[in-house]
Design a binder for these strands. Structure first.
Lengths: 236, 236
DNA sequence: TAGTGGTCTAGACCACCGT
DNA sequence: CGGTGGTCTAGACCACTAT
């Protein structure tokens, strides 16, 4: 289960083990996991290492830790389907989604190595797509995904839902995301591609999308006059 | 500077010391702080304790750490996890939150009766507040909350965290929210109140906040050049 | 009282960075 | 090469929780 000689840090192996164990045993929010000392015993590792794994899981919102009690599966902070798949979101409004690929190439992943947990010399696909609803452009989406995760992906493949492609062709299902929202003013590239007036406000999303490990990084700009993004948030 | 006998954990005292030191010495983003081993030496504490302080500062976005190089003042952004409390969000960035109430009155709830599940003739408080961080306005927030839920709430009460007031004074804890995000351009009212240039892009949030039943409806406008809203999304 | 997470020590080896 | 942050060990004491 845990290989101390692996180049992958022990605390990260333990984090992955715990996630898989939660899934395998079908644990639900509120259920407890082993205590820190039990993981020490189980894998013959130091408590500080276990705590590093649990801290990471806590920051990721997967567990909560309670003094004197133990660590428990967290109640999900947000439940949401629409934010994941542009395709589904558009369909749910009875409109027809469409995609136009404007850029598709392999670039250095150096700038994303920390985000995507890859080595700086590894390469990533850069995929820039205009997303349309009823042939009207509503978003410009740029995705960075390691080449090793989706080798030989082809341009015509990526005209559909990336979520579906990842799930069906590469067996990668996105389980959670960390998204930050902000507002920006259009620049000339966005105005050209999305057919905007000069100085249109746009909703900017930056998100890291995880299966267990990070899968892809995305920066998107949404026309938001007639298109809002909705999230349900469950507070802890 | 650091009192090992204090009930305040050493790592937390060190975190505070570093923040004060940054301010006192007027360090700017990109400037370096001492190395981990230098802090060990300076205060005669263990390196793991120093690392705990630096980890906290890193998570708070106050510093960035670079392997083989050192730790440096981060470019400031305000981010929030979970969208809960403006007050907490600002405090976590080591800034001081402040609130200025610009409107506080009772209005007809007709327009919100479906949202808040009240009868059309019932009344709601309209509370419009400027939210500030270190005396800089960052958001304009308008809240509509049924009078019957918070009878006799007073203007001076609502200068703090509404979340805390609801929880402490009315035993209402917000458990989940439905929030929609969009981007808009400032109008003259927003420009006046938030001290904006003409045509500034703003992040607009509209949210319904529930305990079990709907409690209040909120429309907020956030300056988002240096202010991002961060959410963790767990996909089902 | 036994078990939990929170804090802390005093070391260690590693990969990475700049000179 | 020396210095940096990243990881890890094998202990320790504390405050808190439940029984």
């Amino acid at each position: 289960m845990i290989d101390k000689k692996s180049p992958i840090p022990v605390y990260y192996q333990l984090r992955n083990y715990i996630i898989q164990d939660i899934e395998k045993r079908g644990l639900m929010p509120g259920d407890g996991i082993l205590s820190e000392r039990e993981y020490c015993e189980l894998f013959q590792i130091s408590r500080m290492t276990v705590r590093q794994a649990l801290s990471k899981l806590e920051r990721e919102g997967i567990i909560v830790r309670e003094k004197g009690k133990g660590s428990f599966i967290a109640i999900p902070t947000i439940e949401q389907k629409g934010l994941m798949s542009f395709t589904e979101m558009v369909k749910s409004k009875n409109m027809t989604p469409n995609t136009e690929v404007v850029e598709f190439k392999i670039v250095s992943g150096e700038e994303f190595s920390k985000i995507l947990l890859i080595e700086p010399w590894e390469q990533v696909y850069k995929i820039k797509r205009i997303r349309e609803a009823d042939d009207f452009p509503v978003a410009l989406e740029t995705i960075f995904i390691p080449v090793k995760l989706v080798p030989n992906i082809e341009e015509k493949e990526i005209e559909g839902s990336l979520y579906e492609i990842l799930k069906n062709d590469y067996n990668l299902s996105i389980k959670n995301s960390n998204t930050s929202f902000s507002a920006v003013t259009s620049d000339s590239e966005l105005e050209d591609l999305l057919l905007l007036e000069k100085g249109t406000p746009l909703l900017k999303l930056e998100s890291i999308n995880y299966s267990n490990d990070p899968i892809y990084y995305e920066i998107s700009y949404y026309k938001s006059d007639k298109f809002k993004l909705n999230v349900n948030i469950r507070h802890i």
